[in-house]
Amino acid sequence: MARRAGAPEVSAGSMADIAFLLLIFFLVTTTIETDAGLDRMLPPMEPPTEEPPIIKQKNIFTVNINRNGQLLVEDEILSIDKLREKAKAFLDNGGAPQGSPDYCSYCKGQRNAESSDNPSKAIISLKNDRETKYSTYITVQNELVGAYNELRNREAKRLFGKNYVDMEAEYLNPETEDSVKEELKEKVTRIQGLFPQKLSEAETSTE
């Protein structure tokens, strides 16, 4: 008779293999992704009784996209790759004369009296057709946001020696400490005040 000393021990040698198998399964299925995109604010529904404010024509920069993806900017046909420069020139124009309340001390533009008075007055109006392709629309949005970002970067570099985009990303990052955030918030809002993003999206034309 063979000697039996209790139950035989279960071999744990394959435990590692099983665990590895599971590990590899979860490794493969895990997606640690964060989405990214263009942040926009939609205009609130206006109360029907309210009169729309009167805006001087020279403070509006109109961008029209037709169904074929062509651009009409300030009543002229423009290719998309020139849009950013044109938008920057408009926003940075600072056409109000020195001494007037709208005078823009930090603008480096042409100071053309026919274009926008002050970045805080300048409005970009974007209009598109129902048949416009979404990808074209995103490209145009991207260029307009890019124009704002470039100008904001310039001012942030001048005032704080840092890029606006980096500052904002740090401010929005949930891992940033609160004390740093407070400080950044002040700077970010100041830059946003210099070049406020006034991008009006008109309702689409149907024809």
Binding site: T34, D35, A36, G37, I138, V145, G146
Partner: peptide
């Protein structure tokens, strides 16, 4: 999705 360069991360 289309491409864009001036993106912001969608946290939280």
């Amino acid at each position: 999705l289309p491409n864009a360069s001036e993106v912001k991360k969608l946290e939280k």
